[in-house]
């Protein structure tokens, strides 16, 4: 464990908690893409299948459990408890356009052609693009609540910090996982546009609006 990865995990945890609290306390999921949340729940499900078979550390197991519980809780709140506030008219990104190509790629490009490894690879590729429905929804509505932009900033920062972690581990342990690195770079690049808007607008106290 290194500081970059720890900060990345905490940033990821912060993002997940921010979103869950936003929905729970405002009792509304306006402006949040339910499809992205479903994809994230799928990412954690396919990545943490070894939760009970491959114990790494208390921290690792605890975080995996928290991610799984929070992501499913968020999906539950959005599609059941606060369903009336779910903005399905703007959350129209076709998930199958992401899941099918990612599923195919996971079969073709992986480290080891075993079910667990292919599912892990699928989760890495899927996580890279899982935010697209959310970014698409914001581009359609043309704006995002400030709390949602904080959520996105924390979520985008997590994988950017992981990239620093991978560089650090390469120089200190000679370790690198090309699949995770390439997917992590794609994932972070998708946030660049948003990072620019966040830093130039939200940090100046303005509302996050996309140029229509």
């Amino acid at each position: 464990m290194n500081i970059f990865r720890l900060l990345g995990d905490l940033s990821h945890l912060l993002a997940i908690i921010i979103l869950l609290l936003k929905i729970w306390r405002t009792r509304s999921c306006a402006g949040v893409s339910g499809k992205s949340q479903i994809l994230f729940a799928l990412v954690f499900t396919t990545r943490y299948l070894d939760l009970f078979t491959n114990f790494i550390s208390m921290y690792n197991s605890a975080m995996k459990l928290i991610y799984l519980v929070c992501s499913y809780a968020t999906v539950f709140l959005m599609y059941f408890k606060f369903k009336a506030t779910y903005d399905s008219n703007h959350d129209t990104f076709r998930m199958e356009f992401l899941v099918v190509p990612v599923g195919g790629l996971a079969f073709l490009v992986n480290h080891d052609f075993t079910p667990l490894e292919i599912l892990w690879t699928f989760s890495i590729y899927l996580e890279a693009v899982a935010i697209l429905p959310q970014l698409f929804m914001i581009s359609k509505t043309g704006e995002a609540e400030t709390i949602t932009s904080h959520y996105l900033f924390a979520l985008g920062s997590y994988r950017a910090l992981y990239i620093v972690n991978w560089v650090f581990r390469f120089y200190t342990e000679g370790f690198f996982d090309l699949i995770a690195i390439v997917a992590g770079c794609v994932q972070t690049i998708l946030y660049c546009d948003f990072f620019y808007l966040y830093i130039t607008k939200v940090l100046k106290g303005k509302q996050l609006t996309l140029p229509a």
Partner: peptide, 10 residues
């Protein structure tokens, strides 16, 4: 040297 991706990351 590419080691198998360690799954110690979240």
């Amino acid at each position: 040297n590419e080691k198998l991706p360690s799954k110690d990351e979240l």
